[in-house]
Amino acid sequence: MTSRKWIALLLTLICFLTGLFLPALTVRLQDIHLSGSHWPLNHANGHYAYQGTLLNRVLALNAHLNSSPALFLTNREPADIPSGIIETLNAFLPVSVDHYEAAETFTLVPRQYAAEYRYAEAIFTGENYSLTVIIDEETGLPLRIELTAEPDIISLYLNENGLWGSLTKYANTLSLGELADGPTGISTLIQSQSAQIRGTQLGVTVTAMPSAGTLLFKLTGSVSP
């Protein structure tokens, strides 16, 4: 065999072995390159841009209404509310809601946290009722509905639906899930029924004072240590 043939054979063998082991070599080099690699986070503080969970906002609203020092209120200003809320209210309230008289938004900020929770508050009045609704701006859900009407209207409504029926109507409006049984409290002056929404830390409560002509629906939340 000539020397040229030997050289050609050798080169072919080198190319053959290169083709055989090149992927393994590349993979090894890739491992060396990857070992100890460090990549910065795309959005190190990105999670602060959120508006909180519904539970956060429910807890914040209820804490605010209970004058809790854990948060403070900012930015109360006039605003419009979604027109769909009137249809929602007419669907389960004993009065015919027409239009809101005043509406404004407000923001709650938990102390020591960068989150902000926004709500809208609307006041409706009619000949025989007065209605205050607080709506979660993020989801559009009515978190709190407080109706003041003639006692007969409230009594008739309660007689027709009962506390559980009223609660169920409100829960259906929220569309957050099925209700589990909850405690019922009845006294001569105040009737109250609460229920957990199954699988969540959220609950709904209806409180009625027929003699005073008030009916209160609210979404509640709780966490335990």
Binding site: A70, S222, V223
Partner: peptide
């Protein structure tokens, strides 16, 4: 997010 939400909730409940 979840951890912070929980922390906020505890803070809101005192």
């Amino acid at each position: 997010n979840s951890l912070e939400s929980s922390a906020v909730n505890y803070a809101l409940q005192g």
